[in-house]
């Protein structure tokens, strides 16, 4: 890694003020560090200063009541996965968090870090490759090896968003709170992420001097079932080839409402309104669930090596819907 000075955060004002002194990359925040230190070791990022957020009090707590969850951005992925209320009532979130990486990484990685993590794309992570996302001319995945890249929403940068927790939160209708020098603002987790067509250089709407501080998750309806299905090449650690976060409000095996968000197939967690529409108000059968899957991927634009993701995504959606119907 390049040298950097390391500063403990004392308050949100101090943090946003330090971040405001420069643009992207000069001063960066570090929470768990499991993604950021990886980037520093590969010289993808070379900040002069790291601000340690872990010294900010109270930002790692999880609290739950009848109306929902409040999770501090510094809560670890492990804490989220093991929280009883989350395991019992927000199953998709517990499963997503439990599927992240390895125990070592879950113990240290934070919610904020998981949402804000950068792509795993092997062109992006290669210091010598001047890819489009890093300010260059070309997305190398287009003509290159695209087995792990996007089939939806890619143009012009075909990374996939690596987070498991993000699709789960969006499926649960979560929102998050951002703090900047002007104060705080709240938005849905869905709105937090952006597609490359809007901004090829970043994956979310954060300004350089803003940080995520908290996520709020409304309590699912009493008749809601939720799952996180993650297709991988090896058991762990492995990022998703494709994943489905599904929340299904069921009446018997009729789906009254569904929230289906895909991971590993698009540059942002991908809310499939098409799949949701195909299931809403329907009795879920094999063919209904398959149709939902087909609808979800009908506009997919695979690259040279990732057409299999189209089939895989369709099948995962079908599987999730069938699980809801049981």
């Amino acid at each position: 890694m390049e040298k950097f000075s390391y500063v403990n955060a004392t308050s949100l004002e101090q943090v946003t003020s330090l971040l405001s002194d420069s643009g992207w990359g000069e001063v960066m925040v570090i929470a768990g560090g499991t993604d950021l230190l990886g980037e520093l070791k590969e010289y993808i990022e070379t900040p002069k200063t790291l601000i340690n957020l872990k010294t900010l009090p109270g930002m790692d707590s999880i609290s739950a009541d009848g109306s929902g969850l409040k999770i501090g951005a510094l809560a670890t992925v492990a804490d989220i996965a093991m929280y009883p209320e989350i395991q019992n009532h927000y199953t998709v979130l517990a499963q997503a968090a439990g599927s992240v990486a390895t125990p070592q990484i879950r113990n240290v990685g934070t919610l904020g870090g998981n949402l804000c993590q950068r792509p795993r794309c092997w062109y992006y992570r290669d210091e010598t490759v001047d890819c489009l996302k890093k300010g260059g001319e070309l997305c190398y995945a287009i003509e290159g090896l695209s087995k792990y890249h996007a089939i939806l929403g890619g143009d012009p940068v075909y990374i996939v968003h690596p987070s498991d927790i993000a699709p789960a939160l969006i499926a649960l209708g979560a929102s998050l709170k951002i703090v900047g020098p002007e104060g705080e603002k709240t938005m849905s987790v869905e709105e937090f992420f952006t597609l490359p067509a809007t901004n090829p250089y970043r994956e979310n709407v954060l300004e350089p001097n803003e940080i995520v501080v908290e996520v709020q998750v409304p309590h699912p309806k009493s008749n809601a079932k939720s799952f996180y299905l993650k297709a991988r090449e090896k058991g762990a650690p492995d990022f998703a080839l494709a994943s489905v976060a599904g929340v299904f409000e069921m009446e018997g095996n009729t789906c009254q409402a569904a929230s289906i968000v895909l991971g590993g197939v698009a540059p942002a967690p991908w809310r499939s309104t098409e799949a949701e529409a195909a299931l809403t108000g329907k009795m879920i059968t094999e063919s209904v669930s398959m149709q939902a899957g087909e609808d979800a991927v009908k506009d997919a634009q695979p690259l040279n090596d990732n057409a299999y993701k189209v089939t895989l995504t369709r099948n995962l959606i079908s599987r999730a819907a069938m699980m809801a119907a049981k």
Binding site: Y6, N52, P103, N107, V108
Partner: peptide, 13 residues
């Protein structure tokens, strides 16, 4: 008390 990868924890932390 938590298992971690020491390669991803900074000494100062």
């Amino acid at each position: 008390g938590r298992l971690v990868n020491s390669c991803l924890v900074l000494g100062v932390e």
